[in-house]
Amino acid sequence: ARLLHGSIFAKVIEGLRELVNEATWECSGNGITLQAMDSSHVALVSLVMRSEGFESYRCDRNMSLGISLVSMSKVLKTMGKDDSLTIRVNDDSDSIIIAMESQNQDKFADYELRLMDLDSEHLGIPDTDYSCAIKMPSSEFSRICRDMSIMGDSVLICTTKEGVKFSAKGDLGQGSIRLVQTTNIEKEEEAVIIEMKEAVALTFAVRYLSMFCKAAPLSPQVGLSLSEDTPLMCEFKIAEMGHVRFYLAPKIED
């Protein structure tokens, strides 16, 4: 799998590695997918990178590759900003080859990372017709998570026709941030768009939402989909090639 802009792949890894330290990559002719839960089984990430999004891609037989995302992140940090990246696994090999090339082809770096034998548990994510779909700038969402974490461990997300409200309370007191829907969309990247069938009010652990925000550099906009008593879906699109979707189980009154 070759990417002209290797930095896209580095951003994907940076976006996942805090939530899941290691994961099994499923490779097929259609591309690369990954599904993994965090160690507490509260959140789940689902990654799709379609073959046509790569400069070149070939996969002769389906493979499951157990990879340490922490190690891969270290290797990818050695990559130059404009380097291209090729990822390769040879038949019957127990390692993955990560090759980087500088833009003017005067530097070539090769790394081999040992593959891991991982016990991965696969979940079926049901198709959900969410009550609310919010789009907002990724940077805004990151900031809201950071700001809400000052006040408490949990954030309550409430949507109405007018907008979306994030609130948190704790020992210090309480705080809230309300975003109203953008009425005059000039720049789509900066817009807040709320599609609502039903109002929702759901509580989530801010710590996980903040971890999802590590994937924010992938896309200028984030999508949040919500339904009562259903995990939140937080989506970052990966250019033309796919997406990273994070799911977070809500906190529910017993």
Binding site: V42, L123, G124, T230, A249, K251, E253, D254
Partner: peptide, 14 residues
């Protein structure tokens, strides 16, 4: 107090 649910509570195992 709201209790944190597990993701496996919502998504079935394959």
């Amino acid at each position: 107090m709201a209790q944190q649910k597990s993701i496996t509570f919502f998504f079935r195992k394959k």
